[in-house]
């Protein structure tokens, strides 16, 4: 019984939030890794793309709500997600056309691409703050919990329990579906294979008659779509804050690099590794240990490795360790 109580606590405070946050990171890292695999540069604007997608979704949600549209128990934002994806993909298309295609034609150094992506980041950040303002927006109007802690306790009779938020269930499910679709696309379809071929060996892909412009545009569209999902899901689960997305670049890049940059499976695994370690390291284990240990050994302190304030530092420390010990990441990176 005590063991179950401890497990319920860990599920409530580490596993569920960890897998939710990990899914959001995974979707972001997938976009970063795809761009890296095909265009060979680290896209610093990716966080802002997530923010952009979420912003468009929020704007349409407001518009929809003003006409009385809602999605019952689910957040209204989900209805408008496809529109947001369309807009973000279009935005990515313009970025590629007006910014990156020039450097691609010139075969510029990856670092030039990186600087250009910072220009895009600046512009997008400004655009977002100009349109929606710098303050927080809460746009989750669905039912908050599928079941909450109290209901769980009543149902199981345990002292501790966990609640499942709607946003958590939506995030995890959506991520599983999206990743499955993406992997089937990359591994089974002709277009997906051409993307992988282009990423593996650009010259040979060209000789085989693959159209580079098509591949690159498609990559942007997919990355933009994933970014929108990541941004909206993050906003639904927590709250939409324009400035948080620059901070999220760090865990997202860490996830991509830890998994092996350019490797989609790595990006997903990296996302969960980063998210779960953040929570495992900053969780206060006192209550858990109280259940597991005999009464006499009950700990007095918080039993916390690191204060919650240093959540972001965890992803950074993991990043540095991976860069030193195994720079190619868990799954050898570079190509998709």
């Amino acid at each position: 019984m005590d063991f179950l109580n401890a497990l319920a606590l860990i599920t409530n405070y580490i596993l569920l939030p960890g897998f939710t946050y990990g899914s959001q990171l995974a979707l972001g890292a997938l976009g970063v890794t795809l761009i890296y695999a095909v265009l060979r540069f680290s896209n610093f604007a990716h966080g802002e793309l997530m923010s952009f997608g979420a912003m468009i979704c929020i704007l349409f949600t407001w518009l929809g709500q003003s006409y009385g549209i809602n999605f019952g128990v689910l957040p209204t934002a989900l209805i408008f997600l496809p529109i947001a994806i369309g807009f973000t993909a279009l935005y990515c298309f313009f970025i590629e056309k007006f910014v990156f295609s020039y450097y691609r034609r010139k075969k510029s150094d990856p670092i030039i691409f990186l600087i250009a992506s910072i220009g895009v980041m600046f512009f997008t950040a400004g655009l977002i703050r100009f349109v929606i303002g710098p303050s927080d927006q809460n746009f989750n109007d669905g039912v908050r919990f599928i079941f909450n802690v109290r209901e769980f306790k009543a149902f199981t009779g345990l002292e501790e329990g966990f609640g499942l938020k709607t946003s958590q269930a939506i995030t995890i499910l959506t991520t599983i579906i999206l990743c499955s679709i993406l992997f089937v696309f990359l591994n089974k379809t002709r277009t997906g294979k051409s993307m992988r071929a282009f990423s593996d060996n650009e010259d040979l892909a060209l000789l085989s008659g693959i159209d580079p412009n098509k591949v690159v545009l498609l990559t942007w569209v997919i990355a933009g779509g994933l970014a929108t999902f990541a941004g909206v899901l993050y906003g639904l689960d927590k709250i939409y804050k324009p400035f948080i997305f620059l901070q999220m670049l760090l865990p997202i890049f860490s996830a991509a690099i830890v998994g092996g940059v350019g490797n989609p499976i790595g990006a997903v695994v990296g996302g969960y590794v980063i998210a779960l370690s953040e929570l495992f390291v900053t969780f206060a284990y006192r209550k858990v240990l109280a259940y597991l240990l005999p009464e006499s050994m009950e700990p007095s302190g918080m039993m916390q490795f690191l204060s919650t304030d240093y959540k972001f530092a965890v992803s950074f420390i993991i990043l540095v360790i991976v860069l030193i010990v195994r720079p190619t990441g868990i799954f050898r990176g570079k190509t998709i």
Partner: peptide
């Protein structure tokens, strides 16, 4: 929100110069 146009301007400036 007009003050935030400075970010857009920075971005445009950087992109144009680059």
């Amino acid at each position: 929100n007009a003050a935030h146009m400075r970010y857009m301007m920075m971005g445009l400036l950087l992109l144009l110069v680059l």
